[in-house]
Design a binder for these strands. Structure first.
Lengths: 265, 265
DNA sequence: CGACCTGTGAATATGGTGTGAACGCAGGCA
DNA sequence: TGCCTGCGTTCACACCATATTCACAGGTCG
């Protein structure tokens, strides 16, 4: 199994003895380790592409609870392990409830701390990973994760990285409606701010590029009030199949076209 | 989001005091709980569709390590929490390394045990794409939460999000009468204002769309002065059974239909 | 029969989505 | 260094799907 994959861990702690011992062992195990002795803004944590965060709330001061809760809410894919001296059952329960993944009590053996980090990362990885990326085929498209590109008729769509990752995500859940929040979470790596339209904008760019290289297919379908669904469909078919010869039907043509693409959610 | 989904947990322990306390709290929290005082074959665990397994290795005897390792290897989607009296660091590390998700030391507060089970389940669930609940089948209908849609004879009903959620709620309490206030509360997320007719209007829209795609069934029944009940019934039965061949009977057809559907409170 | 509840269609309000363009940031290049 | 370019983000506006409200007709109950 892939449990031996390297782990990227950040440690927020001032207990230099504990940290240096941990660092030594982590290095021996081939982990990537970052250290800090104070709160790190969520954005930076994102940039580090961490698997897990090991934090002693003592270094966070008064804002400890707020900070932890914020991290857990904004970075649901980050494993959070609290490692603290004394704590009450109520505190631990509260933390675990709002998103902390494990809560270790000091003094603790560094080996156990590492094992718990590993357990959290494993559990965490099992979910999103698994879908090892081979090339995907869909309609006229070929999506090649090894190139970060998609092709139609051997021509590249010239996708940017974000565009590619969005397309890749959608295509690997073919037929399933993905909510905007989910999409944002998985592609951008952190929680979507209320009112953010980035997903919509990228969907539009994707549609443009898809249309340009593969005009006779429609790939991305809008589910009003929900999100988007990837499902390659040859164009043209729609008018025949969804609107089967209703003589009395003189509704506006553009309306029909929209129906074919926008599916009430 | 849906972190409050019910958790299905199995407990393998002989400490009846601990287990009964836990059971009480679990029930209060709406969890599904199974208990056993000995090893349970992996196959049965699968059949229980568990989120997590809480186990004291003491009940497993000599085979404890083998059993645990086997469970972790064969059911990687099952959260495994060990809860034991005394243990060495080496034991904990070994367990956590080969797949145990958390290791609690007794005596422990049942609330903390539950919080840890919750944390493990949450982490575990996040991966599987939010673990939507499975498709529902009712009459000619198929209700698919992953698509936010219902289908009859492979044709979409074109439900909007609200319509879908209303139908989903009703269908998942099949046979039960739901009061308007309850419905509103669950679908809209807040309390219904006095005199609000939204539920009625949406029921009508649902009935229309159901009728359109599945005319020979009636699904939603009115309970006067109370609310609505979802119960798929083949139509036509009524005409034959309730109104058996009365030649003189020319009462309005819609009236008959309503009779069949409206049940006095 | 009268009070109240529900069904129904239409009008209106709300809010989600498509779209073009402007902005800001970073990396490449002269 | 300063310009240029590509990319991601944000904004404003138009358009339309959906949600809510309203008025009235019909049905139900005591």
């Amino acid at each position: 199994m892939n449990s031996q994959q390297t782990i990227r861990l950040a440690v927020l702690d001032t207990d230099s003895g504990f940290v240096t011992v941990l660092a030594k062992r982590a290095e021996a195990a081939g982990w990537q380790l970052r250290q800090s002795t104070g709160a790190v803004p969520p954005q930076e944590l994102v940039a580090m592409k961490l698997n897990a965060l090991l934090v002693d709330p003592a270094v966070l001061g008064d804002e400890a609870w707020n900070y932890l809760e914020r991290i857990c809410a904004e970075l649901p894919d980050l494993g959070v392990i609290v490692c603290t001296g004394r704590s009450t059952v109520a505190q631990r329960v509260r933390g675990l409830r709002f998103g902390v993944d494990d809560w270790i009590t000091k003094p603790c053996h560094p080996e156990e701390a590492m094992a718990r980090v590993e357990a959290v990362s494993r559990r965490h990885r099992r979910g999103r990973g698994d879908a090892e990326d081979g090339p995907l085929q869909a309609g006229e498209l070929e999506i090649r994760p090894d190139q970060f590109q998609a092709f139609a008729a051997a021509e590249s769509l010239d996708l940017t990285r974000r565009e590619f990752e969005l397309l890749h995500l959608l295509a690997s859940s073919k037929g399933q409606v993905l909510e905007r929040e989910t999409i944002y979470q998985r592609v951008w790596g952190y929680a979507m701010a209320h009112g953010d339209r980035s997903v919509d904008v990228f969907i539009r760019k994707l549609r443009q590029k898809l249309e340009k290289r593969s005009p006779s297919w429609s790939y991305i379908h809008t589910h009003f009030g929900v999100g988007y669904r990837f499902d390659p469909e040859p164009a043209g078919i729609v008018a025949e199949e969804i609107r089967p010869a209703a003589a009395s039907d003189f509704t506006d043509r553009s309306q029909q076209l929209h129906d074919e693409v926008t599916v009430g959610s």
